[in-house]
Design a protein around this nucleic acid. Structure first.
Lengths: 336, 336
DNA sequence: ATGAAAGCGCTAACAC
DNA sequence: GTGTTAGCGCTTTCAT
């Protein structure tokens, strides 16, 4: 293994000079810098991570905790994780992957041992078991998701309440007066993951202001469950002319079922989805949707946690893209 | 920060004793061990990862490289990643996440710096750009996926050739004489990811032996693409009575389209899928399928790479589960 | 602009 | 069964 000392000898300089060439923490003459860089290349030198961490008390590693429960929509989580990893690498950081199995103590272990300099927690619930540990932790942390009480914490999330309002507004503007929300699985609400509740609340709030009726029914995303949810909706509210789906898994089955039932999208039923862009565009009908800005969420989490932004909750504004799945409410039966 | 020296002082023993209590590398009297453990608990001591890595030349970190291209099926990758992380933790290892962005050099960096003791590479192509680096690397590595030339490498994968044979055999046994393979996206074949080719080859091989005709058409999994693929298949081979799908994304659209076209599953068309169990069971018709043993693949990769198994290629045997989507071939038109 | 040298916290001989 | 001690490879004062 090539060490810094060997590089120094090879270049005919002292160890500290090599170190400073690497860190850029003091000015080095062109001549020396080039000699050192040449030696580094020729010897194939890689600074030892452990030694560096020990001497500097910084591991340059950021821990990413991704619980990944059964009912979470994996692709979004992964997109966030990739954004975290990419942004981290741009700043010379590596990412340590923690899954849910080990429980909250994983945080203590990783941070206590100095393995990671900072933490990013994904899939944060309204009352998350990890929050007490985050609050008392000496190391910076960022949450992806907004807990019930974000005081003293650094959070990033899509503004789901605004998302709900935006969907309601779009549909109301098209003349819809009865809209249904095909929600997440019941377990998601029980677990009190914030985003589902917040979206629903936003929809209800704006719908109420605009005089639109809202019916919400959970859906676990399987074909059967979606069929059941749909049946309930049309049974309880036959006048329903628009739907908001915020369960990505249910989108395929939903469109399939509507087609089967002879309900045309958007002529008979308008559909707005809350989902990643690719999901919206790859369906049989391109969906009007509010994108989940997974990439930006991951990127901002790294930036906030590494730039010592202090306790900030950053809610990203939703953007609704109109595509082919929403249109004017159908005129009631009998009209021209 | 609590150090080992402080623990030693608090317990009234030497530093090495504390170290040996932690590592179990030499026998310690009950009495001393308990005193030390008590001190560790009382002081809330966590061994410093950097110091440990430096002194022992072992980081206890295993790097997981997950390229995640656009056309890979994310959930399977994630399931493998979770299995890797879980198995690693059981052995006291942590997992460093590397994505594709950084390219093969990421391996050099991570291994050269001693950041990771070993590597696991996912989504390995037949002629993978990372292989030369793996071969010359000083550290152990395991591949998930089977390259064209696995000599000198440690690999784990589902036996896709056997998978293809198994599917062909099952359908032939039910009397089908014309089967179609709804394959992966053309890009997957171009990239020469082994599994797609191997499955197809297995299907063809066994089908030939059993006198069954095979038609293969790629499919990128979108609704539109699946419709196109399906149209081509029935156009070119109207007598098709069975299909093998190995593109998870295409499963939903495929079933939806068949239903729409009035083709009943399994009465008119039998369908076998190569996909994770949950995907097979959550469709409108429970699918006969060969499961992708993601968990076992991840687990074995860690075991092989950490137990110094040497260069071994482990192909996991496929298991086909019969569900509701396959049945006897329909009797030709006009028969009783 | 560069060197010398004192640690960082731990492991693993080597002693007894 | 336990203690002593010399590094591991790097960062960072303190000097010059």
């Amino acid at each position: 293994m090539v060490t810094l000392a060997e590089v120094a000898r090879h270049a005919g300089v002292s160890a500290s000079t090599v170190s400073y060439v690497l860190s850029g923490k003091r000015t080095i003459s062109m001549r020396t810098r080039e000699r050192v860089e040449k030696s580094i290349r020729e010897l194939g030198y890689h600074p030892n991570a452990g030694a560096r961490a020990l001497a500097s008390s910084k591991s340059n590693i950021i821990a990413l905790m991704m619980p990944l429960r059964i009912d979470t929509y994996v692709p979004v989580m992964v997109e966030i994780a990739i954004a975290v990893a990419t942004t981290a690498r741009e700043r010379g950081l590596d990412v340590l992957l923690l899954t849910g199995q080990e429980g909250p103590e994983a945080m203590r272990r990783v941070v206590g041992s100095g393995l990671a300099d900072a933490m990013i927690l994904m899939d944060v619930e309204l009352e998350d078991a990890r929050l007490p540990l985050v609050r008392e932790a000496a190391r910076p942390a960022a949450l992806i998701g907004l807990p019930a009480d974000p005081s003293g914490l650094t959070c990033v999330d899509l503004d789901f309440a605004a998302t709900g309002r935006l969907c309601a507004e779009h549909l109301a503007g098209l003349g819809h007066r009865d809209i249904a929300v095909v929600g997440e699985a019941a377990a998601v609400y029980e677990r009190r993951t914030g985003f589902a509740e917040r979206t629903l609340q936003g929809v209800r709030e704006r719908a109420a202001e605009l005089g639109v009726r809202v019916l919400h029914r959970p859906c676990d995303g399987s074909y059967e469950s979606t069929a059941g949810t749909l049946a309930r909706i049309f049974d309880e509210r036959p006048a329903t002319t628009a739907m908001i789906v915020q369960n990505e898994a249910a989108i395929g089955p939903l469109l399939s079922l509507l087609r089967q039932q002879g309900r045309a999208v958007p002529e008979d039923i308008s559909v707005v989805a809350v989902c990643p862009e690719p999901v919206a565009t790859q369906q049989s009908v391109a969906l009007t949707s509010v994108a989940i800005p997974a990439h930006e969420m991951g990127r901002r989490a790294v930036e906030l946690v590494m730039d010592g932004a202090g306790a900030v909750s950053e809610l990203l504004p939703p953007r609704l893209t109109v595509r082919a799945s929403t249109g004017p409410a159908p005129t009631p039966t009998g009209a021209p």
